[in-house]
């Protein structure tokens, strides 16, 4: 609105609303920054990967038939927990031609990991991919993924 002298009169209320909105956005972003900064999914997936490989070697597992029970019993991993949405395990064992495969948990996490590489979306899951040799000499490929942002 312009007064008689032609100068612009700024109403305080709309300006205040704009400032409040800006401050609210800053506050929300601060919260997101602090919660995303302590995401330990990558470390968690590395630990899980390492535990599965050492489990195969210590228990001399040379087939994936009944391997999930052996992993649970011999390596103290809770299968019920690992079958939830938060975790993913993919194990491939063999000599390259005839390979066995075992999947546990939520396979969506692998897609999230691929998208995360491209978009750096902080709340997507993190994965670890390892290629090793089992005690039987077979090639053991283990992919683990963790996303603790899932509720269940």
């Amino acid at each position: 609105m312009r007064d008689k002298g032609g100068t612009m009169e700024i109403d305080a209320i709309p300006v205040m609303i704009i400032f409040i909105v800006i401050l609210a956005v800053i506050a929300v972003n601060t919260t997101i920054f602090y919660s995303a900064n302590i995401n330990v999914d990558k470390k968690d997936s590395e630990i899980l990967n390492e535990r599965i490989i050492s489990c195969f070697n210590k228990n001399e597992i040379n087939t994936l038939v009944g391997a999930s029970e052996k992993i649970a019993e011999g390596c103290n991993l809770d299968l019920d927990k690992l079958k939830t949405n938060k975790y993913y395990i993919n194990i491939t064992l063999g000599f390259g031609v005839e390979e066995e495969n075992l999947q546990i948990g939520n396979p969506d996490i692998v897609l999230q990991c691929k998208l995360k590489e491209d978009s750096k979306a902080k709340n997507f899951g993190s994965c670890t991919h390892t290629r090793a040799y089992a005690s039987s000499g077979q090639i053991l490929i283990v992919t683990t993924g963790v996303n603790n942002a899932y509720r269940k």
């Binding site: 305080a12 209320i13 205040m16 400032f19 401050l23 609210a24 506050a27 601060t30 919260t31 602090y34």
Partner: peptide, 22 residues
């Protein structure tokens, strides 16, 4: 004046919240 007072209070509130978050 009342708008400026509300704005100052809200700014203090926001920064207190951010400090508590950190």
């Amino acid at each position: 004046i009342s708008a400026i007072i509300i704005l100052i209070l809200f700014t203090i509130g926001t920064f207190t919240f951010m400090t508590l978050q950190a």
